[in-house]
């Protein structure tokens, strides 16, 4: 079958503003949208810029807007989306070229929440013990691949780019509820600030956008609760 795509293009070396370009490529219905994009790039238009690596939804490179929703191009099948498939870069981050956005503002916010285990006690000679139930408390938020689909789908983030955003909150959650970590209070202080967790208006776009099916709003709710009741 032939697939039609409508792609938002921008090359800072040539363009003053973005423009749309249409392509038609051969594809199988079960092909990924990424396959169609790489078919364009390989055989029709080598100037198209996009990121890609694993091609099966675990590396987080190819997050983009597909028919106005944030998706991984490698996890979206051609047969599941309406044509022409409208492809745009993620919203709310500066565009470098075509579908490639500058991720640094996103990772800067990631680093703010201390995204690493803090525990300066001398570790035991073997592993720290953790029960199956304790481990389960933060299982969901360990799935995050930092693709930025959630943060760049969030209206609160669009209107205020200082907001830490759902992805950073997910990362914070992953450590706050880990029994081995000792910096929960410190992290909660960071999240309690003006641009922290209270910017979340429970709009659920992030849950809809997450390619890892993390229940982000639930995780954020648990953080809010921990702040209100000072329990974690």
């Amino acid at each position: 079958m032939d697939v039609k795509l409508r792609i938002k293009r921008f090359d800072p070396e040539r363009d003053d503003k973005p423009h749309w370009q249409e392509y038609t490529v051969p594809a199988e219905p079960t092909d990924r949208v990424l396959d169609a994009l790489l078919q364009i790039k390989g055989y029709q238009d080598g100037t198209l810029a996009l990121r890609r690596s694993c091609a099966h939804g675990v590396c987080g490179s190819c997050a983009m807007r597909i028919n106005h929703l944030n998706r991984l191009a490698c996890k979206t099948l051609v047969k599941d989306v309406k044509q022409p498939i409208v492809i745009e870069p993620l919203k709310g981050l500066p565009v470098i070229k075509d579908l490639v956005v500058d991720m640094e503002p996103f990772f800067e916010k990631f680093r703010i929440v201390k995204p690493f285990l803090v525990n300066d006690e001398t570790p035991p000679p073997t592993e720290w013990r953790q029960s199956i139930e304790e481990r389960a408390r933060f299982d969901d938020t360990t799935k995050c691949i930092l693709c930025a689909s959630c943060t760049t789908s969030c209206p609160s983030f669009w209107t205020n780019s200082e907001y830490l955003g759902p992805a950073s909150l997910v990362q914070a959650h992953r450590f706050i509820f880990d029994t081995r970590d000792r910096a929960a209070a410190e992290r909660l202080d960071i999240l309690n600030a003006r641009e922290g967790v209270w910017r979340c208006r429970t709009i659920f776009n992030c849950v809809e956008a997450c390619p890892r099916e993390i229940n982000i709003t639930k995780a954020i709710g648990q953080i809010k609760k921990a702040l209100v009741y000072n329990r974690f």
């Binding site: 000679p125 592993e127 081995r180």
Partner: peptide, 19 residues
């Protein structure tokens, strides 16, 4: 492997809390 666990790797656990 113990290093990784001490750095926070969320291994699945046995019934007695080991890796």
């Amino acid at each position: 492997v113990y290093d990784l666990e001490h750095w926070g790797l969320p291994f699945d656990r046995t019934a007695d809390g080991k890796i």
